[in-house]
Write a protein that binds this DNA or RNA. Structure first.
Lengths: 215, 215
DNA sequence: TTTGATTAATCAATCGTTTGATTAATTTTG
DNA sequence: CAAAATTAATCAAACGATTGATTAATCAAA
């Protein structure tokens, strides 16, 4: 049946996403992926053409939905720039903490000099989302909601860098936070609201035009 | 000669560091490393026992010196907590932007679930440095130089996350900064002071106790 | 000559991919 | 509807290439 085929492909993508995240692109063998997914090795090539095709399929499945979400926030004319940014933060934190293995996957492969074509594709997909954030901050500056002398690209680097660090370097952030970050309950009930609150305060202190940053 | 041997080992470590950073642990073959270093493949095992041994040797060569630098800053009783933090930022930015391929190397391998023993070793080494920063911030809070309701672990995540993002995701940050980040001159003359200024303003706005963070 | 450094050749293991065959499902034809 | 033809899905086996590591022979220096 067609339904079963889609389900099976989706199942493979689910498994492959986790295995890639754990072991990296090179480290994850097609045998390991097919083995864990309970399918024959040849099915990966049959469905996705190649290992790289499987890798890209994982991305394309994930990114699109979040992009439209960001765009909806950005295009909403009824709320202020700061409220838009808050909404972005909330959505990002919700998203990345839940399926963090996908984030790890991106962060690892994007630093590769090998496989330029693949990296370029990933960067291209990500930049669309990055630019949505950037646009919101720029809007805030032009409407004088944010200070005019802020460093927008580096603010973006802080937003993405902080979230990447927390989810991507699990062992390190576990030690820093003094919690086992694989503890689902802690992640959901404690860390999630905590990161949201922190990011908002941090950015508000720097961005919002209530004191002079230039000194 | 003994001198020549040490030079050769160092040369291998230099090359291996770059190749590992570019291609990852799995992606970097011993043939590629020995080939680029201009030595026979067997010399890697002869000198470092194994590929993993070579990998660890790269770390041990690098980390120690910076650790003592951080500790010297932390133990200096003649300057304020904020000045200590500024010094740390300056030193970090100077260091990571120059040899960023080492940072990439760490950031990639630390996210691996594979090779727990190796990751643990790396994390252990890094945590010493992380704790130095943490100690300085804690000192600032206890002396009321910093606001008491700040989230220290997440501040650490921002410091390391932002720097990691800039150097580790070169392609992405090149696009965000609208500059080719491999341009040495831009990195040295523009980006370096810019990141320093930004990090200080960002952290000061959040940390220093001149407005109430709790609202 | 003896010891340590260096080499080319080779090892078993594993890699991603391809193959040819077999089964299941679908479509076409009579 | 039923038989035949076609397509899709799945499999075990094997491919050539590459991996990290080791061997035994050679070289250089003391």
């Amino acid at each position: 049946m067609d339904k079963d085929k889609i389900d099976k492909k989706d199942h493979i993508l689910d498994v492959a996403e986790r295995v890639f995240a754990d072991l990296g692109f090179d480290g994850a063998s097609t045998r390991a992926i097919s083995g864990e997914a309970g399918v024959n090795m040849a099915m990966l090539n049959y469905y996705f053409g190649s290992k790289e095709g499987l890798f890209l399929a994982i991305f394309e499945r994930k990114i699109a939905s979040f992009r439209t979400l960001l765009q909806n926030i950005g295009n909403d004319d009824t709320i202020s720039s700061w409220d838009k940014l808050e909404k972005c933060i909330d959505n990002y934190v919700d998203r990345i903490i839940v399926n963090n293995c996908f984030q790890k996957l991106i962060n690892r492969e994007i630093t590769m000099t090998k496989r330029w074509d693949l990296t370029d594709k990933i960067v291209g997909i990500l930049m669309v989302n990055v630019n949505e954030i950037k646009k919101i901050i720029e809007e805030g500056v032009s409407t004088a909601a944010f200070a005019k002398d802020i460093d927008i690209p580096l603010v973006v680097a802080t937003i993405f860098g902080t979230k990447n660090f927390i989810v991507s370097q699990l062992q390190l952030s576990s030690l820093i936070l003094a919690h086992d970050i694989r503890d689902e309950k802690f992640m959901e009930e404690d860390l999630k609201p905590r990161v949201k609150t922190y990011m908002k305060r941090l950015l508000k202190a720097y961005l919002v035009n209530e004191h002079d940053n230039s000194k």
